[in-house]
Amino acid sequence: MIAQVVPILLAFGANLGDRGETIRAAQRELAGAPGIAGFAASPLRETIALTPQGPDPDAPRYLNGVATAETTLAPHALLDLLQSVEHAHGRVRGAHWGDRTLDIDLILFGGRVIKDERLTVPHPRGHERDFVLSPWLDLDPSAVLMGHGRVSELLARIGDTTSPLDEPSGPATETGGGTSDG
């Protein structure tokens, strides 16, 4: 049986430790993982921490980025991989929307809609988060978020509070295993 190849969109965030190196290391690990190919990462962007009460300018700032890839993994197997990478980088699941060394969200899994006790795809708040939409536009200016429309229009509607990060080695637009059009 031939495994189905599914395009995915992942979102990365960190506001503790060496945020940029943690995200880039996690991206390299995922790019080299079995069942993942064509991994392309956006430039990183910095944002104010978002809490259940709203933006918190006093909390450590986040670095965020997204990546596109293709996978032959089933959705929950991919989620297990993402959570194992988070754990390897010191992720502790505590307070909802709390500070973290690494957060990896599965935003899209092909055209599938998944909603169960472990996974909701498309991500239920991806369309209202500039820290997902802005780096996604950096990676793919013609991106469309399933069920919500053009990413450029979504970002224009909510506003962009992110700021580009000046990465010494430049953005990781391609991280092994495939080619990038961007």
Rank of each mutant, 00 (worst) to 15 (best):
Y62I: 01
L30C: 10
P7T: 09
T161Q: 10
V113A: 13
A74P: 02
L165H: 10
L154M: 07
V144K: 01
D140E: 14
V132K: 03
T68P: 01
I23G: 05
G111Q: 09
V5T: 14
E21P: 04
S142C: 09
T51Y: 00
G182N: 14
D130H: 12
H148C: 07
D58R: 05
E128K: 13
S180F: 11
T101I: 09
M1P: 12
G149K: 14
G65F: 06
P171M: 10
I158A: 09
G110N: 11
V5R: 14
A14P: 03
S142P: 01
I114C: 04
A49L: 02
M1L: 08
G38N: 15
E29D: 12
P122C: 05
P124K: 03
G32H: 12
G38D: 15
T68H: 08
H89G: 08
T179V: 13
D140H: 09
P141D: 04
L79P: 09
S134D: 12
A25E: 12
I114R: 06
V113D: 10
P75W: 00
F131V: 02
I8W: 07
A67M: 06
D130T: 06
S142R: 11
K115Y: 09
A40K: 03
D18Y: 05
D103Y: 11
R93E: 03
E21L: 12
L108V: 06
Q53W: 00
A14M: 06
L63H: 07
L50M: 15
E29G: 05
A172C: 12
F12E: 00
W97V: 03
L44Y: 04
K115N: 15
L165A: 12
H89R: 10
I158K: 12
L102T: 05
S163W: 04
L30H: 09
A41P: 10
T175C: 13
V121D: 00
L82W: 10
T51R: 05
G17S: 02
Q4L: 13
R19V: 05
L16W: 02
